[in-house]
Computed example of a mutant assay.
Amino acid sequence: MQKLLTATALVSLMATSAFAQEFTEFNIGILGGENAQDRMTSNECFRVKIEEALGVPVKIFTPADYDGVIQGLLGGSLDYAWLGASAYAKVYLTDPEAVEVKLTKQNVDGSTGYYSIGFARADSGITSMEDAKGKVFAFADPNSTSGFLVPGAELAAKFGKLEDYFAEVKMSGGHEQTIVGVANGDFEAGVSWADGLGNWEDGYNSGAFRKAADAGLVDMSTLVEIWRSALIPEGPMVVRKALPQDVKDKVTQLTADLWETDAECAYAVAAGEAKDFVPVEHSAFEGILAARKLQEGM
């Protein structure tokens, strides 16, 4: 005789069915900083691994600007992203319950920070930020930590209103655009990000310069570093808080193990050489949250 389902088993079955109906795909948002195709190519290995782990289709989305990823996380259309600290601050200040902080990148020296690097063409005669006075200067994106928030605040504190110090202040749209723009002479100087470790000629160990150099977009010997910010906390990898716990756990563990399981894929995701992806907490970004509040007059 067919056995009747116990109440516990019935509830479990109903929960499983509801989960199957609710969780049908997983969407990854990649911040701007390089062109969309390169962002997708760099993260394809990661997408495949998550798809295999979760058993549902996984898609990569590459919005034109940082705010596209921010709004995707806030609106629930994106499930995962590696944010800069400033972008995370905007998400958190808009809705503290939208995402959970999980991991961050650990550099080869064990640190978990990076720098905003000011730079110019090597043949420009600009060797310092003082030399850049009266020049056309490029930032990356209003929601970028190293591409606007931190350098903007530090440079304004030292030189005053940036629109008065530079001949023109422009937003390039992303780190890659700034690097290529300075190299091509579209901007006379600008800022981008790097871990500051290794050699300038390689684009340092990791960061936007390393990505651009690896892609053959720029010869680093044609550029020169002219300024460096204080150390910035590496941005967090976040997951949408409303996701089922086992989904969040699987994605977090897969990412945490990536340097051990597939170093080539990890290199692509990390924008260069790194040591690991390690746990991080919300408290690591309190300083950036305060700076973002100040910027927005909150």
Rank of each mutant, 00 (worst) to 15 (best):
V280P: 14
D141T: 11
N205R: 04
F119K: 11
L13K: 09
D123M: 00
T24Y: 03
A208S: 14
Y88A: 02
A87I: 05
A64E: 11
F23D: 07
I30G: 01
P57M: 03
K170D: 08
E188N: 06
N35D: 12
N184K: 05
V191F: 01
I60K: 02
K161P: 02
T8Q: 14
K49R: 10
E296P: 01
E273F: 12
L197M: 10
G33Q: 02
G113Q: 11
P236Q: 05
V224C: 13
Q177G: 03
S172D: 04
F148G: 00
A189Q: 07
Y267G: 10
S124K: 06
T62C: 02
L78K: 11
M129A: 08
L93K: 01
K275F: 14
V91Q: 13
S42A: 08
E25I: 00
T145L: 09
L54Q: 02
K102V: 15
A213H: 07
V280K: 04
E25Y: 00
L93M: 09
F26Q: 01
A138R: 08
A290E: 12
K59S: 05
G125N: 06
G181C: 09
D65F: 09
L4S: 06
K59Y: 02
D276M: 09
A274M: 11
I288S: 06
N27S: 10
L13G: 04
L31E: 04
A189E: 08
A153T: 15
A122Q: 13
V269S: 02
G118P: 00
I70L: 02
R292M: 15
K241E: 13
E176N: 03
A189Y: 04
L223T: 08
A242C: 09
E168L: 01
F61Y: 12
I60L: 14
G29I: 05
A153C: 01
V58K: 00
E163W: 08
T112I: 15
A290D: 09
F209W: 04
D202Y: 13
G134Y: 12
L10A: 13
P96C: 03
N35P: 11
V108A: 15
T112E: 15
A291E: 12
F148C: 00
G174Q: 02
K102T: 15
E188L: 00
T104W: 06
G198L: 14
I28P: 12
E100W: 01
A87H: 06
Y115H: 12
L78T: 09
E176W: 08
T62H: 00
H282C: 02
A140W: 01
E22H: 07
I179N: 05
D131C: 06
R121C: 04
T255Q: 02
M171R: 05
G203M: 13
E97W: 01
I226Y: 11
V56K: 01
Y66C: 05
I179D: 04
T62F: 00
E168D: 07
A212N: 08
G297T: 10
A20W: 08
D202N: 13
S124H: 06
E51A: 15
L162E: 01
Q245E: 15
L103Q: 01
